[in-house]
Design a protein around this nucleic acid. Structure first.
Lengths: 226, 226
DNA sequence: CGGGGGCTTGAGGCCACTCAACGATAGTGG
DNA sequence: CCACTATCGTTGAGTGGCCTCAAGCCCCCG
């Protein structure tokens, strides 16, 4: 690897990783906070004073155009760290998709740690690179994939990241899925129905957020690979 | 800033920056190489043995779907550094848009320098973060902007980056612009003609790659901001 | 002067969007 | 417990923006 950070691609980072894998004795205070469904965690262009790790729930991270069009760049699920963009200001608005608990760390503490501890900087580099890779893949999806391919890619991504059982419970509504994929919510709904009719998916009654993938192999064929 | 790298946002990085701003005495050999128009510099999933800086010309960096659809993620112009993705393999294919001269640095050398010199790692973090910011903005463009907004944003970006005189000479053909913006070349051509008819642009006869922006202010209104 | 690549322009089509109606679900308060 | 409401999701009809297919022009170059 470019900067050696052995094992880091094998398991997720944690805030503990950032600060505690080195020999440093610095102890970082880790506060927790819970956001109700739909509330903003921070806004675009606000000072970036904290870094966050999702303990419970899910977070959406997006940009808006002045007329309200929205592009969600990422969903942050349990374990994910977000808000550590390299700069003084946040580049996205983030909101709790459902009731969400996060751990906070003061960015200033991280700055100081990074100054004295190269491991911290390397972990930040590794995490930033992971974000970049996701963004690069998402550009291909947004620019060149059809609605069927987009939705299939989304389901495959969520199936991988939501380590849940046979039933996948999406935390986000159709509108969020649409704004993540560059579609409308109606199109997302239509494609999901189409997949259900094709016998690839099934919905659990009572909640259309609960989805069963009946045929992963077939689903994968819907999303053209590089 | 998150990791202090004073002054680095004010001017572009150079390969010299990576290796020579610290106290390290390591001397990195900087080789040059010239690629003919259209030739591949490296392919996706190839081992990433070198990092590159454009000395002359322009480079496109893209991903392909198996049926040939292409998404260009970035154009690398004079001064830009590319190919330093954090991992063993390149994530894009890169090609010379026109005849292009690059400086090369062995990645292994950078790895070693990064191990012994925190400044190197921080510069890599800073550059990776800049790439991420560009990708984030581009996701909004690809997912939510109209063809008019996309082309306007492209012209504004190129006007800023190609520091040239009143006449902007685009190094890339219409097809590359289209694959950068998630459009077809015909749509790009139509939008450019529309802007010319609107008195915002003019083309220089003899070469449609040479474009004069007559009204920057008006052009800016075509691209909706966040 | 002929050939080829790049660009423009037109005609028609299709995929995703818009607008709209309806159903289902969950939360609220009487 | 049942309206009542708001939110979310599905589905249909019709539209439109961008794509596809095609022709023709311009410039470069042999």
């Amino acid at each position: 690897m470019f900067v050696r950070t052995a094992g880091q691609t094998a398991r997720p980072h944690t805030l503990g990783d950032i600060g505690m894998t080195s020999g440093s004795n610095a102890v970082v205070s880790l506060n927790e906070f819970t956001y109700k469904q739909g509330t903003e965690i921070y806004g675009e262009k606000e000072p970036a004073d904290y870094v966050y790790q999702v303990k419970k729930g899910a977070v959406r991270s997006y940009k808006l155009l002045s007329d309200g069009r929205r592009q969600i760049a990422a969903f942050h699920l349990v374990g994910d760290i977000f808000g550590f963009a390299n700069g003084e200001l946040h580049r996205f608005t983030t909101e709790a998709v459902v009731e969400t608990t996060v751990r906070l760390i003061k960015r200033r503490s991280l700055d100081l740690m990074a100054d004295s501890d190269a491991v911290v900087t390397r972990n930040l580099l590794s995490m930033t690179a992971n974000n970049l890779h996701h963004a690069e893949d998402h550009m291909l999806l947004l620019g060149r994939k059809t609605s069927l391919e987009k939705v299939a890619a989304f389901l495959i991504e969520m199936d991988r990241r939501l380590t849940a059982a046979s039933v996948m419970t999406l935390p986000m509504p159709r509108r969020d899925v649409a704004d993540y994929l560059g579609l409308t919510l109606e199109t997302v709904s239509r494609v999901l129905s189409q997949m259900r009719r094709a016998g690839v998916l099934d919905f659990i009654s009572k909640s259309q957020r609960e989805i069963v993938i009946i045929n992963r192999q077939r689903l994968a064929t819907f999303d053209l690979q590089g």
